[in-house]
Computed example of a mutant assay.
Amino acid sequence: MVLALAGCEGVDLPVDSAPSGSAPAAGSGRATSPLDNPDGTKPGLAPLTSDADRAEARTLIEKVATKGRGPKTGYDRDKFGYAWMDTADGVPWARNGCDTRNDLLQRDGEDVRFRSGSDCVVMSMTLHDPYTGRTIDWTKSKATAVQIDHVMPLSYDWQMGAARWTKAKRQDIANDPLNLIPVDGPSNGSKGDSGPASWLPPNKQIRCSYAVRFAQVSLKYELPVTAADKETMLRQCGG
């Protein structure tokens, strides 16, 4: 089934063989602090509530560079590779025999059930959605109820410098678990390609964590954010 997403697009791809590399463990949907999850391979997005964690978050966000958002001229989703590829070699779980979307559903879902004969294609699961705070009982027959959000949207990446990257690097950021979170579909649709100054998760408890994740992607890929976005990110963590 093809998913048409405002900020992200996904296709469940056929899998011909069992995963050959390291894969996320199904049923591990407990949320993890982004400060304890620098590569994005652990599940969820837990709130940052302590003064120490929020101070650490602000220190991280302060490292993010700023510049104006460039034109969207020339942007096309296909320039970041097809969704969801298993061959973006610069990110975790590449070439494990399972496409990126299903890797993410396994990472964040609980009570994960697979298609008969497959240990990749997720048919149902329970998701504790960080963006809304809701628990979603998801089935593949209603696939768009859960969408995979690119925390730093791909068109935003393009405008902030990815237009000058190699296609291989663009494929990495499009499939990097650090930049990807399964979330409530309508919430993801409302985000589009917005930065934090224009859109934040409805669940206020998670906004500092969201800002940290946005900063982590920015720093890993050396992509600046707008000054307004950085100011908003700092404010979510008490800055």
Rank of each mutant, 00 (worst) to 15 (best):
P202C: 00
A88R: 01
G192D: 11
W199L: 02
G29Q: 04
T135S: 13
G70C: 01
A23W: 07
S141R: 14
K67W: 12
M125S: 05
A168D: 15
G44F: 00
V2H: 08
L3A: 13
D16Q: 10
A46R: 04
A52L: 02
S116D: 13
A227G: 02
K167M: 10
H128C: 00
F114Y: 15
L154T: 05
Y221D: 07
D39L: 03
K67P: 00
L219E: 07
T100N: 07
D76C: 07
Q216I: 01
T66Y: 04
A88V: 02
L180Q: 07
C237S: 03
V217M: 11
V146W: 09
V15L: 02
S218L: 00
T144P: 11
P34S: 09
S22K: 04
R107A: 02
S22I: 14
N175M: 03
T166K: 07
L105V: 09
G7F: 09
G109T: 04
W165Q: 07
V2M: 14
D157H: 11
N179T: 06
D184K: 06
Q205F: 10
P196I: 09
Q171V: 12
V151Y: 01
L60G: 12
M233Q: 10
G90H: 02
C98A: 04
L45A: 07
N37C: 08
G40N: 02
E62S: 15
P38I: 08
N188E: 12
T126I: 10
S50P: 00
D76K: 08
D129T: 03
S124N: 12
C237P: 06
P182H: 05
G7T: 05
Y156K: 01
A6R: 09
L180A: 03
G68Y: 06
N102A: 13
D176L: 10
S155N: 13
R170P: 09
